[in-house]
Design a protein around this nucleic acid. Structure first.
Lengths: 197, 197
DNA sequence: CGCCGAGTTGAACTGAATCAAGAAACGTGG
DNA sequence: CCACGTTTCTTGATTCAGTTCAACTCGGCG
């Protein structure tokens, strides 16, 4: 997948030239993360936001029965963090783990301070991100409340065609809240339907 | 239920004296809303945030089969709006309806402009609200992915004991994503278990 | 070549939905 | 304050979507 550069990304989205964000981004740590390693574990305190320049992360919880539930994926160009932990200073409720070897930028409190001081419309942008996040979560809740496994899968396919190709089916199932076997059957069924048409 | 006053609410949460918010709040329209009337309908453009001073609102979608799915409740002291519609200028995806006769304050774009200009930490407060909202939605998704009907109900009981008493069971069921009959059975079961203990 | 994780398939099971009917609770008007 | 209709809740019988468990297939990859 194409690499995305935080500097470029910010310049574009904040409507400024790259030089304006250069010195801010230079302060940030860039990390190369090996597949399967953790950025945050449940119970730890998460102190950073993460911007994915390359690779793919996933965020998930583990319930009492030991089952994983994927909260979100983050491919390149996405921010991810445990907001509760960062913002409210609580132990993280979710794991954040690299599913592919990834390159990520660590964003700490200093980064936030600095950028919101230097770039006036950063706050606007950030608020927009928050609104987008909320919109997205609401949509997902609505789907979980109203749609069948098949409908949810179809929705996932159209919404995240790229991610679909990069993660094992098991993880898609976990994201959708269904058993891997069920997803397999759903797909079989869809294939049959399409063939009939 | 106790009435909550926006002026007081803001003064407390923004850490300013009431006078500072007085003139801002005075510009806002206060409305008396009859039970069952709508503040926003699916498809309409929502132009306001709503603060509930008294009463109880609910936000819900209707799926293709005509079924209602409750996205959220808003009792006194809560803000509610269709963020997508207000913020992204899209048609609302959800209905907002009064379940009780209510008194609400309409907050428009002017209000936002004015208050964020006059009161410096309003933005901080607002961001905090957004973070809280996200935390809350994440928790709900996690529950929908991992917990049984009974577990979700128990969680609701501890989380919203007040709302539980104010809305019919059907609505709680709709919020939890289960059929009313199922909720009835869940409750019966819980009663039996408690008796046995 | 042989192993290993991912996906598939089958069969039995189960939590929850649906449909239908009755019982309680509730508000309204007489 | 009672009688009434309406809405909400309960209960039972049946069905169904999705789970679980177990066995098997397939495609890498060391």
């Amino acid at each position: 997948m194409d690499k995305i550069n935080l500097r470029q990304y910010l310049a574009t989205n904040l409507h400024v030239v790259e030089n304006d964000v250069l010195e801010i981004v230079e302060h940030c740590t860039v990390q190369q993360i090996k597949k399967d390693s953790f950025l945050v574990r449940q119970g730890e305190y998460c102190r950073h936001g993460f911007f994915v320049e390359q690779g793919l992360l996933r965020q998930y919880s583990i319930d009492e029965k030991g089952k994983e539930h994927i909260i979100s994926f983050a491919p390149e160009g996405w921010f991810i963090t445990d907001r509760e932990s960062v913002y409210f200073n609580e132990p993280a409720r979710y794991f954040i783990q690299a599913y592919e070897n990834s390159q990520i930028v660590l964003l700490d409190e200093d980064f936030n301070q600095l950028i919101s001081k230097k770039i006036s419309n950063y706050n606007t942008f950030n608020t927009k991100l928050l609104h987008n996040h909320i919109r997205h979560l609401l949509k997902r809740i609505d789907l979980l409340l109203s749609a069948s496994a098949e409908e949810r899968y179809l929705q996932f396919v159209t919404m995240y065609p790229d991610i679909l190709l990069r993660v094992p089916q098991t993880m898609v199932a976990s994201y959708l809240g269904i058993a891997p076997e069920s997803l397999s059957r759903v797909r079989k069924d869809l294939a049959r339907k399409n063939f009939k048409k």
